[in-house]
């Protein structure tokens, strides 16, 4: 029983990280039809920033990571994606690979390819005892932070004018522009927001792994992409639920698979994804078929 509860908490907290990654990717996909693989480097750069500021007062270091990653996201939008904005999705995808590659190898050049260990808030590793159940503090923090951030993003998208403009742009960009929604503005805000999400993920991820390595964000971006596919391309709640689902399934498989099958955990996850795509191509959480973009 205690094992089951611990596993559940674990599953939810891994799912929470994936959900934030998926939301960052889903935001950009919705508006631009861009699958931004550089989202993984947004996270990685955040981790390196935290590594460099290790020893500083933690809230300050976290804020610094957020500022750096948001600025990076805005700069990437301006320099790399704005010139190809109207190009076809394949061009956008290739651009995002190029940006991802460039950032990753810049990190290798500066810091080397080896993982660098550092300690971000060691007290987060201590477990909390709730009755019989030992739950790492970090898991609780991850879940709470995710819930708060998701609620804040949801409020932003529902209650503010720019939020409504972003939702409109995500379902029908041309119509939104015909009504006066400024493309430059919604796209910049979307990049800023996905940078913010990546930065928060980087803080939680750094606390969890305690290392910085150039390719560490890749897994998150891949899962984030998979989650947006499962959730139904273009649906933000779908992306979040998709992220939670992938995270939860990964952890649960780890727990229930016999040890010699655990190495194939990812293969099972991706098999499940393919099954979803075959059986429900519109995504698990999407009722209406995706609108054709005109």
């Amino acid at each position: 029983m205690t094992y089951a509860v611990q596993t559940m908490v674990d599953a939810v907290s891994v799912g929470a990280l994936y959900a934030m990654s998926a939301l960052g990717i889903g935001l950009l996909f919705g508006i631009m039809r861009l699958i931004n693989f550089a989202q993984s480097e947004f996270v990685t750069v955040g981790v390196y920033t935290l590594m460099l500021s290790a020893g500083l007062w933690f809230p300050f270091a976290a804020l610094l990571a957020i500022v750096v990653v948001v600025l990076l996201a805005l700069a990437v939008e301006r320099a790399a994606f704005r010139p190809v904005r109207d190009a076809d999705p394949a061009t956008l995808l290739i651009t995002s690979f190029a940006v991802s590659y460039l950032l990753q190898y810049a990190l290798v050049l500066i810091f080397g390819a080896r993982p660098i260990g550092f300690d971000l808030l060691p007290q987060l590793g201590q477990p909390v005892l709730i009755g019989e159940v030992r739950i790492p503090r970090l898991n609780i923090v991850t879940i709470v932070v995710t819930v708060v951030l998701m609620a804040a993003v949801a409020l932003f998208l529902r209650r503010t004018r720019i939020g409504i403009e972003m939702r409109a742009a995500a379902v029908d960009f041309r119509m939104a522009r015909l009504l006066g929604v400024r493309a430059d503005r919604v796209i910049a805000v979307a990049f800023g927001l996905s940078g913010l999400l990546a930065a928060v993920v980087s803080v939680l991820f750094a606390a969890q792994t305690g290392t910085a390595s150039p390719a560490m964000g890749l897994q998150l971006a891949l899962v984030g992409f998979v989650a947006t596919v499962i959730g139904g391309m273009g649906s933000l709640p779908g992306a979040v639920l998709g992220g939670l689902a992938v995270g939860a399934v990964t952890v649960l498989l780890q727990a229930v698979l016999p040890p010699d099958l655990r190495v194939y955990r990812e293969a099972f996850v991706y098999a499940a994804v393919i099954a979803v795509l075959v059986l429900r191509p519109q995504g698990l959480f999407r009722s209406a078929a995706m609108r054709e973009r005109v």
């Binding site: 004018r161 409504i164 939702r167 409109a168 029908d172 939104a176 009504l179």
Partner: peptide, 14 residues
Amino acid sequence: HIFEGLTVEENLLL
């Protein structure tokens, strides 16, 4: 081109 997922009022606000 009514925006899917948006309320009538949100459509108007746009």
